[in-house]
Simulated scan of single mutants.
Amino acid sequence: MSRRQLLPPDRTQAFTDFLARRLLRVPARPGQPAEPPPGALRIASYNLHKCVGTDNRFDPGRIATVIHELDADILALQEADRRFGRREGLLDMAELQRHTGLAMMPLAMARGGHGWHGNALLARNARMIEARRLRLPGGEPRGAVMVELEFASGRVRVVAAHLGLLRRHRAQQVNALLESIAEADDTPILLLGDLNEWRPGPRSSLRALERDFGPVDAGPPTFPSRLPVFSLDRILCRPTGLLGGLATHETPLSRVASDHLPLTAHLDLAAARPAALAAAA
């Protein structure tokens, strides 16, 4: 019998977190997320693993159910399209919209695709103002999308990305993302997705993001979904004070539907207006 079998589930997770912090220098899990302020938007990022679960089953229906559980207003998806061939999308987006209200932003180049290099963006009760597809440098095809959305509570610019597997490529891709927002106005910017970085401290390929988005190390582990140890997924915001409640969405279904757990947070766009007025004063 293994050590994991000897421990009850809550102590198993505590033991795993302890090992992660001691051996891998992964930050401790945050406590219970705070209640969002009235009118805050719910944000989520989810790597679908092409709808193949930890049981090796291809099941888009399970992914759709997890997305329904998220109840997000803004949702970034990674690996939402087939990687080869016609790059078709893997979800029934029309059915998903009927059940969740989430509309897919028109980002795909291929007919029937969901996004750009597998990055799809969905939003509820929002108007798309502008969208850009970004090519990212590196040894494998990678991309990001930048979409400006207008909600009743205000505007937000969303940058959704899936960075590369090699540290030097991720560093190049981070610089490319920063260049893409260098001339942006003071509209709040969300940066979210699978950034593929688990190293905290000076070795992190995400370090250059801190000037604009604040600390990049803090974040709950999302991978592997059955027993998460690595904080591969991020939700970041500029300015930093608008984002709160960062947490994993961990349910029996989300632990098996993909090898990543979804990451969620809330965004208070109403708080951006006083900050902008104070900066202009």
Rank of each mutant, 00 (worst) to 15 (best):
L236F: 09
V158M: 10
R42I: 04
G118H: 09
V229E: 07
R155A: 02
F213N: 06
L6R: 15
F213L: 10
R273L: 15
M146H: 07
R3L: 13
H68W: 14
R133K: 10
R3P: 10
L163T: 04
R142L: 03
K50Y: 13
R142K: 03
P200Y: 03
R226M: 11
M128G: 03
A108M: 10
A123G: 09
V147I: 14
T65D: 12
H117C: 13
I129R: 10
R25I: 04
D186H: 15
L96P: 00
G138W: 09
A34Y: 04
P221C: 01
G113M: 09
F84D: 11
N175H: 14
R226N: 06
M93Q: 02
R135P: 09
S45E: 03
N119M: 13
L136A: 03
L263T: 00
N119H: 14
I67C: 06
A265T: 01
N47H: 03
R273S: 15
D17I: 10
T248G: 05
A131P: 02
I189C: 13
A280E: 12
R111P: 07
T12M: 12
S204C: 01
P262N: 05
A276N: 13
G31H: 05
A103H: 08
R135I: 12
V256R: 14
G112L: 05
T264P: 06
M93E: 04
P274I: 09
P221N: 07
G193R: 08
H169C: 07
R127K: 14
A275Q: 14
C237I: 06
G245R: 07
H169Q: 12
L253D: 09
F151V: 03
C237G: 02
E197R: 06
S180K: 10
P239T: 07
R4M: 14
L253K: 08
R238H: 10
L122E: 00
I43W: 08
A161F: 15
P239G: 08
A161V: 12
E95M: 00
A103P: 04
G112D: 06
E210H: 04
P141V: 02
G193F: 08
G143Q: 07
L75R: 08
L91N: 01
E95N: 02
R234C: 01
H169D: 15
A247L: 05
G214L: 05
S254V: 02
L206T: 03
L75G: 07
A40T: 02
A34Q: 06
Q5W: 13
L253M: 11
E140C: 00
G245Y: 11
A182H: 14
